[in-house]
Design a protein around this nucleic acid. Sequence first.
DNA 1: GACAAAATGACTCAAACGGGTTATAGAAAA
DNA 2: TTTTCTATAACCCGTTTGAGTCATTTTGTC
Lengths: 210, 210
Amino acid sequence: MKPIYVTIIEDHDDFREGLNHVLQFTEGFSCVDAFYSVEEALPRLQDSDVILLDIHLPGRSGIESIGSIKQKLPTSKIIMLTVFDDDDHVFKAIMAGADGYILKKTPPAQVLTAIQDAAQGGTPMTPYVARKVLDLFKKYAPTPSKEHDLTERELEILGQLVQGLDTIELAEKLFISRETVRNHIKHIYEKLHVHSRSQAVAKALKEGIA
Amino acid sequence: MKPIYVTIIEDHDDFREGLNHVLQFTEGFSCVDAFYSVEEALPRLQDSDVILLDIHLPGRSGIESIGSIKQKLPTSKIIMLTVFDDDDHVFKAIMAGADGYILKKTPPAQVLTAIQDAAQGGTPMTPYVARKVLDLFKKYAPTPSKEHDLTERELEILGQLVQGLDTIELAEKLFISRETVRNHIKHIYEKLHVHSRSQAVAKALKEGIA
DNA sequence: GACAAAATGACTCAAACGGGTTATAGAAAA
DNA sequence: TTTTCTATAACCCGTTTGAGTCATTTTGTC
């Protein structure tokens, strides 16, 4: 069976070489390269199944480099290595499209499992990091509150309001009179208990209606 | 050392009893109770470190029950058991405050690890589920795009627009003339490249400006 | 002190908006 | 069958808004 090809980018020599050895001597894994910085790695990057990337690196940080690496090797999965959890960094790494987040203190056996998980399309996460991610998630996700009770048509129109259309544009887009549009909007206001377009738009976005 | 006390709520007999036995015969774990439904469990729930809760249950579903269980046992950690990933259910479970999500096909050894992780405040997640969560996250999180270049005052006013204030309310709140407010708003429009309040509000919310 | 940004304020004007009321046709529910 | 709900449409009225131009003061920087 083909081994999983792994590239390491990590400035801490001991950790990098330790990982390197584990990978070399474990059946089913193969370490393609091991770099100490992104600057060194980028021009020489070879196709890998998984890239282990330190989140804190001298020079270009791991987070900033996710994009460049993904561009060069679009199919490779990137697992971030972090020393401790840092809400802001975790958030940025997620948005940049990393495929896993594990603490450096994770025992080698679990690192190997994580590499396998990532190679298979999962997103391995240290439970401690996962907790941070979910807390962030709850903070940012829309909180669908009460029933809005909007009809199909009203939802459609609210959606267009969020897109920024005005009454006339909406009327033309839906092939109805502007008066009808105004009527629907009035009903939306009543049902959402708001009194202006911007309030309706804000409510729609905050509660994930549109 | 005190064992980790676990309660199981799962309608599938084989799975429930299997887990029960594993917990009984593993050092460091103790199964407090094993129920086949939330209705049966709720009145008889005893304090536990971790509760394993099936996401699909006859009668009251696991998700709907998270709230009731958390209310009765606020310090217990709840790990959801899922057969397959279902974006919508995972999302709801997260918002309801579950502390872990693992697939039922997870091998017993890893279930035990997950129980330990949850007991220690982490959020163990099967990598496959974690992938779904992160995809959802990216979908809902604001995507800070370009520079908006707004001044302090303009940001303040944009924030109030998002809250739904109209020009006059804003003027009164900030102790300035309504004409000044309108001027600021005009500048905001120019900088955000929009032409109406609702567009400005939508942009502010989508890009996390306000 | 000179200069550039901000913040403040005022004026105009047409267009859009929010709030009412009313009406009709068709679909769905009672 | 009658009633309710939905989508459609029109009209009125007063207010707000968006866009433009201009002016003053404050603030920060060179």
